[in-house]
Every structure is written in structure tokens, then in C-alpha cells.
Design a protein around this nucleic acid. Structure first.
Length: 226
DNA sequence: AACCAGGAATGTA
DNA sequence: TACATTCATGGT
């Protein structure tokens, strides 16, 4: 039987780009969670620099994040932008893990996905996408991550109207796919890869693995973005 | 030299 | 609910 279109889309992307292996699982969960916060509306390249900054400052631990002066965190993560907000978010996260889980992030991440997600959402600076990224990539739990690329792709495929909420899109993916963290992990990463590499690099969209659709944002005139 | 990057909170109508 | 603004650095 032919797979449904949601599974088929995944297959085409995987076939085109191969496994992306974002945060494969042998990485430090704290680094992954911190990375998820740092990369908010900022390139992963700069988020990595900020991560390095924290490492160099000796601030890559729950205790250090909680106790370090704001200025020290500011310096460390400046490259990722929005450094004041992100410092507050990192501290809010660290304070919660310290206060409620004895500083052990695994205890937070081992909670059932729904309560984990709800708790992450209480932290100021952590919204739905970041909460899902932490659930999926740090905790290895099957929570689908929706981002601007995902929305744009579904719009251009004509699979959604365009006005759906984050919760709508997440629910749609999760209703159409088996609850498999490995699948969700690769799926989201592949959508990002497709948008960045294929769509941005090739204005003509020739050889697009996704129905000859490109996700170039508001391409002037033509450019293959529909 | 505008525009984008693996967003979120807040304010206004 | 639906938009607009703010936060901020770095690459193209």
C-alpha cells in the first residue's frame, strides 16, 4: 500500500538529504536544552558560539547558570542575540531545575511528556516551539516541533489553509504519524534542511524533492516559491 | 544594505 | 482572536 502523504513526505526528504542527526542522543541533555533556548530566532551557528561562550565561562551547569551574575551570562551568549532575555530564560530554567529537581535535569526530562511540556511552558522565555524542542531533542520524547519552515512548507503544499495555530499543526502531525521520537526528530530536522539548503540555494527549484515547491520566503516576482 | 536566523512576551483593538 | 512591536547579534 502506498504510504499516506505525511509519511511519504518524510520518505522523500530523507531520501533526498539523508539523516540529519540533530542531537543524536548521546549529547548532554543540558547542552541540548540550553541550545534550544539560545537558538531562538538566531542561526544555529551563533547559538553554538554562545554555547561555547558558556562552556568557556564555566557556566554550562544548572548551578552555574543559576548563580552566575547576569553580566557573565550576557558576555558568554552575546553572539546569539537577545542576550538579556535569553539570560533570564536560562536562569529561570536553571532555578526551576535546582529548586524542584535537586538540580538534576534528568528528573525533569524523565517526566511524562505532557507534564514535562506543561512545566517547560511555565518558564518565561520558553514557548511552544522551544518546549517541544526540549521534549524531543533533550528528553527524547515524541513531541513534534513546529516552526516557521514547517508552516510555510505545509502552506505551499496546500495541505493547510494558513491560519492554523501552533497547536493545530502539532496535533495534525502527531495524529498522522506514529509517536516515534526518532521519526519526529528527523522529520523536523529534514524540513529545516530542505528550507535552508535546497530552497535558499536554488532559486529555480529544479529537482526539488517536495513536489517542485520551494520555501523561499516571499521571493520577489518568481523564484520558484509559487 | 535590507533581510533572515532551528521565537516569545507584551500590548492594542 | 489577530496583528504590531520589542528584544539584538551576525551572516548574506
Amino acid at each position: 500500500m502506498t504510504a499516506d502523504r505525511w509519511t511519504d513526505l518524510f520518505s522523500r526528504l530523507l531520501n533526498a538529504y539523508g539523516a540529519q542527526e540533530w542531537w543524536p542522543g548521546d549529547d548532554d541533555p543540558l547542552e541540548i536544552a540550553v541550545g534550544a533556548i539560545l537558538t531562538q530566532h538566531c542561526s544555529w551557528r551563533n547559538a553554538e558560539r554562545a554555547l561555547e561562550g558558556l562552556r568557556d565561562a564555566g557556566a554550562l551547569s544548572i548551578e552555574a547558570l543559576r548563580d552566575a551574575p547576569d553580566e557573565r551570562i550576557h558576555e558568554a551568549i552575546r553572539a546569539a542575540g537577545f542576550y538579556r532575555s535569553k539570560t533570564a530564560t536560562l536562569k529561570g530554567f536553571a532555578e526551576r531545575v535546582a529548586a524542584r529537581y535537586n538540580g538534576r535535569i534528568e528528573r525533569l526530562l524523565d517526566r511524562p511528556m505532557r507534564s514535562l511540556r506543561d512545566e517547560l511552558l511555565r518558564i518565561r522565555g520558553i514557548g511552544e516551539e522551544t518546549a517541544d524542542a526540549i521534549c524531543l531533542y533533550a528528553a527524547g520524547q515524541a513531541s513534534f516541533v513546529i516552526d516557521a519552515y514547517t508552516r510555510r512548507l505545509l502552506e505551499r503544499l496546500g495541505w493547510i489553509e494558513g491560519g492554523e495555530s501552533y497547536a493545530d499543526l502539532r496535533a495534525t502531525f502527531m495524529a498522522q504519524l506514529p509517536a516515534d521520537a526518532e521519526l519526529f526528530n528527523e522529520y523536523h530536522a529534514l524540513i529545516v534542511r530542505h528550507a535552508k539548503e535546497h530552497c535558499r540555494a536554488r532559486p529555480s527549484c529544479a529537482g526539488c524533492p517536495v513536489d517542485d515547491l520551494c520555501m523561499v520566503p516571499d521571493a520577489p516576482g518568481t523564484g520558484g516559491s509559487l
